[in-house]
Nucleic acid binder design. Structure first.
Lengths: 195, 195
DNA sequence: GTATTAATTCAACAACTGATGAAATAGGAG
DNA sequence: CTCCTATTTCATCAGTTGTTGAATTAATAC
């Protein structure tokens, strides 16, 4: 079946292997969720022994955390929320949907895992609270900025849930730009108009 | 530990036991999701041997299906969508949030399970497509009724995801009526205004 | 009252899971 | 060249999981 590599350190760069493991982990977690993504499946996909994953990343939860270390969204979010109010909803929807509708998106992976794994839910909560809502608090020039962005975020999360996880046809058929056009007005009202 | 009941049929009504099993299954699935809700945990909660569950309901997936046989939402949804346009968003939000924010809500349970289990995702998709969007198609007197309600549904799904699964403070702190007030305008525009 | 059927537990299996410790090999420092 | 360290596989463990077949008891039909 598998080529049955010999034991012992491989020639060449070692960082390549770590990278392959993380990529295999992301893909497998995204497809299967936390519990059904087995260490053996990830190892097989990376062409590596399961014990090696444990050696590099520790327990399964640490691997998940390492594979989902998302970048701070501040840099991307700031121009969206400080730019002109007309178009703000559109910019936000496009940014998020492009990020979340790529195949094996780590965003979808996080949603899947957060649904059943407490550690993943905690990760996602921290990311939303600090990464997203914290940025809104700092740069969005309207009252109750955290609540405003939270309303947008839940809406967008639901759309991606319906599109990528439940696969409701009304959400899978339109392409990203059509969805952006449908969602933008509601998001923009949440962000800029009186609540 | 457990009282260690004797083997053999118990005296009294037998339907009570089936009911207890279904209730324990719903609660356990809601808390833990499909994979982490073990047959043994459900059985323990129902005060019953795991083999009895299998005897009554067959495999784990059939148990899940039996425990989540949702009622047809048509009766509840029709007055919401045929009533006066002012207040439609409010009625929809209130109906759904009351249903989905009760402890051990089967709605949340379905979301959790759908995130990692294909059969559950299929169940949820069928429920949305036929139960929800089918009703909208029949009774909502505006163009593209399925898409309109789908946009509302994804928004509400996201809110419940943020509130009951991820536990974002901005969504857990307000009570149901405060959330209704925040969401109603956006929902009503989706339902009744030009898209 | 007897025979059949349904409900229930017990014991156990086979498969799979995450994890560990030891052995083998390569890279790098002196 | 030699020694130490980092990387990698192997073999395996201990625990858990869904599921099954046999045994035991109550309800029900005749």
């Amino acid at each position: 079946m598998s080529p049955a590599r010999p034991p012992g350190r491989r020639p060449g760069d070692a960082d390549v292997t770590r990278h392959q493991i993380l990529e295999a982990a992301r893909a497998t977690f995204a497809e299967a969720g936390f519990e059904r993504a087995t260490m053996r499946a990830i190892a097989g996909r990376a062409g590596v022994d399961p014990a090696l994953i444990h050696h590099h990343f520790g327990a399964k939860e640490s691997l998940f955390a390492a594979a989902h270390r998302l970048p701070d969204p501040r840099a991307a979010l700031e121009p969206i929320l400080t730019g002109p109010a007309p178009g703000m909803g559109e910019r936000l929807a496009r940014f998020y949907l492009q990020l979340a509708t790529t195949p094996d998106s780590p965003v979808v992976s996080l949603f899947r895992a957060a649904a059943t794994n407490d550690a993943a839910a905690r990760m996602l909560r921290e990311f939303i609270e600090h990464g997203l809502l914290g940025t809104a608090e700092d740069v969005l020039p309207y009252d109750r900025p955290r609540l405003r962005l939270a309303l947008c975020a839940t809406h967008l999360i639901g759309v991606v849930f319906g599109r990528s996880i439940v696969a409701v046809p009304e959400m899978t058929e339109p392409d990203v730009e059509e969805l952006v056009a449908l969602l933008a007005p509601a998001l923009e009202r949440y962000l800029t108009e009186p609540l």
